[in-house]
């Protein structure tokens, strides 16, 4: 919905021809991606598809042995290869991240209130007292019960769902333009997952920030994202508006992912559907379609010629020689 609302505005995040290599392995191969202001983008792929590495490079969190090429611009400012001090002006305030495991991403010996306030003190130079007041307000907004008491508690005194709410509150304190949520519900119970996704949805409606939701679960992404990007073996294989992606996937890999989402209605299945074969070796030479060995539709051409992303409808792109609609 929002991509066309601000046609002239600078994209919040502009990734161009990004490649990330670790020695022989290529984690990300020539990825280009835009996140418009206020847009919610779901990035889907299995483990090792490079979906996390793309955004780690934006946060400057890649390990030192990573070799990065391309460009990542946040509101027009280049983030790749700049000094940590420059990066610190953006990350944590305008560009924030919610991590997968709330159990381990809060510093264990610091009270919740101090950890939250620290973000504000660092970025907006407010006093500790003001920062703690703002932290309290934010905790109430993300619907943490007894928010006032939580400020004085340590992370281990909170449940997993509550800690993830604290992480969400922390990521929102400085009114960011973009929040990157890296599998924010994977480590949580299913019931809590739904609450956390609800919280993200409500906060987005209230604050209007953009969200990048990284997940391996189509179901999680479908409820929150305006647009879905599917990655496979370090490349984007398909992207398009959520409704269209769910109804008419073009890439056989997306279709296979969708088949793996268990349905509550319909005939009972003997086995959970799964995708045969394994994800390709990241050291593999960049030749042909990476999905070809697991693809039922693959032909000789798929093994030789690399399919490029091409538009199949106005905002729907897929990298496949034989898209499903053809």
């Amino acid at each position: 919905m929002s991509a066309n609302l601000h046609p002239t505005a600078l994209p919040t995040l502009a990734i161009d021809n990004l490649s990330v290599r670790f020695g022989e392995s290529a984690a990300v191969r020539d990825v280009s991606l835009r996140v418009e202001p206020g847009e919610s983008v779901g990035v889907v792929g299995e483990s090792g598809s490079g979906k996390t590495q793309v955004f780690m490079s934006a946060m400057g969190l890649l390990p030192p042995n990573a070799r990065v090429q391309g460009s990542v611009r946040f509101e027009g400012t280049e983030l790749l290869g700049v000094a940590p001090a420059v990066l610190n002006r953006v990350r944590g305030s305008k560009l924030t991240m919610i991590f997968q495991d709330p159990m381990t991403s809060l510093t264990p010996h610091l009270r919740i209130g101090i950890q939250l306030a620290e973000v504000l003190v660092t970025h907006s130079g407010s006093s500790w007292a003001d920062a703690e007041r703002a932290a309290l307000l934010m905790l109430e907004r993300v619907r943490i019960p007894e928010a006032k008491r939580r400020l004085r508690q340590y992370p281990h005194e909170l449940s997993g769902g509550m800690r993830q709410r604290v992480m969400i509150a922390m990521s929102l304190l400085c009114e960011p333009s973009l929040v990157i949520a890296d599998e924010p519900t994977t480590a949580l119970d299913v019931t809590v997952q739904a609450q956390i996704l609800d919280t993200l949805r409500i906060m987005r409606a209230e604050l209007g920030m953009g969200i990048v939701l990284i997940s391996h679960d189509m179901g999680v992404v479908a409820g929150l994202a305006d647009r879905i990007v599917v990655m496979y073996a370090g490349r984007i294989v398909e992207q398009g508006p959520t409704a269209e992606m769910l109804r008419r996937p073009e890439h056989p890999y997306t279709a296979a992912l969708l088949r793996c989402v268990p349905a509550l209605s319909g005939p009972r299945l003997e086995r959970m559907p799964s995708l045969p074969g394994q994800a390709p070796d990241p050291r593999r030479a960049d030749q042909g379609c990476a999905f070809a060995p697991r693809c039922a539709r693959a032909a000789e051409r798929c093994r030789v010629e690399m399919p490029q992303l091409r538009a199949l409808s106005r905002r729907h792109e897929a990298a496949c020689h034989f898209p499903l609609s053809a």
């Binding site: 946060m59 940590p84 990066l87 990350r91 991403s105």
Partner: peptide, 14 residues
């Protein structure tokens, strides 16, 4: 540890 990564991501200096 992840909380160090989280601290870096929140823009805290070394």
């Amino acid at each position: 540890r992840e909380y160090i990564e989280a601290a870096i991501a929140s823009g805290a200096g070394t």
